[in-house]
Structures are given as C-alpha cells and as structure tokens.
C-alpha cells in the first residue's frame, strides 16, 4: 500500500497488500491532494523557475496517474482524499465506484473517473471555503495535512483488518512537492516511512515523474533505482505514523 502525498504539493501514501492470496504487486494507493486555495493561487502566479501550474493543469497530470495505477492490476485500489484549509474528506474510492461506463458522464466527453473526481473536488472546496468564512484569516493558512494523513492511515488500517490475514502494513509515504519551497514535514514523513520525496524540476512532465516513481509497487522498489533524499530538514515537526 502506498500513500501518495500530493502537497504543495502532491502527497502519496502507498501500501501493498502483502496478502499471499494475490500476486505480489497489488497496491492500495491513497492519494492526498492539497486543495489549499491560497497555495494554488501562489503556485499559479509565481514567476520562479516553474511558473503557472494551476490546479486544473495539475489535475491533468494526476488523474491519468490514478488510471495508470488501476491499469496495472485488476485488484489495485485508489483512494483520493482532499486536504483543505479547514477540513479533509474522501473524494474517490475505486473499490466502491461503479464501473466507468455505468456512470457515463453527463457533461459531454469527460471520462467517468475524471468527472466524478472533479465534481467531488468542487463540492469539497466550496464547503471548505464556507467553513473558513466564520473566522478571520490571517496570512496564508496551512493545509490540514496531518488530518488527511490520519484519515488515510485509518483507511489503510481498516482495509487490512477486514482482510483475511491481518498483516501489519508497511506504509511508505511518498511525497511530491510542486510548490516553491521544500516541505520539511513531508521530507521527514517520507524519510521515516521509507517513502520517496521528490520536488520535480520540470512541472510540465509531472505525469512522467508520478509514473516513474510513485507507480512502482513496493515489491519492485527493492530492484529499481529511485530518487534518494538529498537532504532532510529535521527541524521539529510531527508526523503521525502507524
């Protein structure tokens, strides 16, 4: 199982179902998307080396990536969790969604999973925004990353408990950071859990980064060259781990 953490960010959590019933490359990937509007506004307008990655462009890379995970194995599972400023919530779960054709998208040619994810994301962002109206916001509020991480870990625990063999999952947290700054929190999270932390140089090829690194099942990780941490910022921050 894997947790892909898409934060400023892509943030990925992965755990491979080590159950002997299946062939060895089954993955449950929980993707945490950072929907923090303050962050995305900066990312869109920033004029540094990687300008103009709007949230929608970002989704253009992430959604095919979700499909590619589902493509790799018929029992692979993808869960998407949105991380907002005031709340977090489940957006998509491939195990409980009807097959793509059954839910043919109403809005023209948009394929099944895409329209569902986008619609739920919109709902989520609006709700998240309403929550923040009550309080006066000072500066750039940060996203509730630890909240959604906990959600993801709970979900993974539940999947394993309901399984036949109750193995203790190894859940590496992979992080893909697309913002201007590194995230010490995610560096540490990936470091502690044995996941991969990257901050792509060329955001136009984000999809390639995602599939190269994060679509690797845990079994194959021991055979492949993956990006290693260049340096981890060990300044105090708390990472919940299972």
């Amino acid at each position: 199982m894997q947790l892909l953490c898409n934060s400023c960010r892509v943030f990925l959590l992965m755990a491979s179902t080590a159950s002997k019933l299946y062939s060895d490359d089954v993955s449950l990937v929980v993707v945490l998307l950072d929907t923090n509007p303050f962050f995305w506004a900066i990312a869109k307008n920033s004029n540094n080396s990687n300008p103009n990655l709007s949230f929608s462009k970002f989704l253009n890379h992430v959604l095919p990536f979700l499909n590619s995970i589902l493509l790799l194995n018929q029992i692979n599972q993808v869960v998407v969790i949105a991380t907002g400023v005031n709340s977090c919530g489940y957006i998509y779960d491939s195990s409980s969604s009807p097959p793509a054709s059954a839910a043919k998208s109403e809005n023209g040619n948009m394929p099944g999973i895409f329209s569902r994810v986008i619609q739920k994301l919109e709902e989520f962002v609006i709700k998240d925004q309403q929550l923040s109206k009550d309080e006066s916001v000072v500066g750039n509020p940060s996203s509730l990353l630890s909240g959604s991480l906990s959600l993801a870990l709970c979900y993974i625990q539940r999947v394993f408990r309901s399984g036949p063999l109750h193995p203790h999952p190894r859940v590496p947290i992979d992080s893909c950071v697309v913002g201007a700054q590194h995230s010490a929190f995610l560096q540490q999270a990936s470091y502690i859990t044995g996941g991969v932390y990257i901050k792509p140089q060329h955001l136009d090829g984000l999809f390639q980064y995602l599939t190269m690194v994060f679509a690797t099942d845990l079994q194959s990780r021991s055979f492949l060259q993956l990006p290693r941490p260049v340096g981890v910022d060990f300044r105090a921050s708390y990472v919940p781990h299972s």
Binding site: S68, L72, Q208, M212, A215, T216, D217, F223, L224, Q225
Partner: peptide, 28 residues
C-alpha cells in the same frame, strides 16, 4: 511481471527508442 508493467508505464509517453544500456541503469 511487475517490473515489465513498470517499464511500459514509464515509456508510455516517450517517442523515441531507449537504449538497452540506459534501461539497465534503472535497476539496482
């Protein structure tokens, strides 16, 4: 096999061929 799946995915959007040598650099 898992590794082969991975390679397909990796090369899905590449236009030109990749040399066998540089592919070997992908693995430990």
């Amino acid at each position: 096999p898992p590794l082969a799946k991975k390679y397909v995915l990796q090369m899905l959007y590449l236009v030109g061929p990749i040399t066998a040598k540089s592919m070997e650099e992908w693995v430990l």
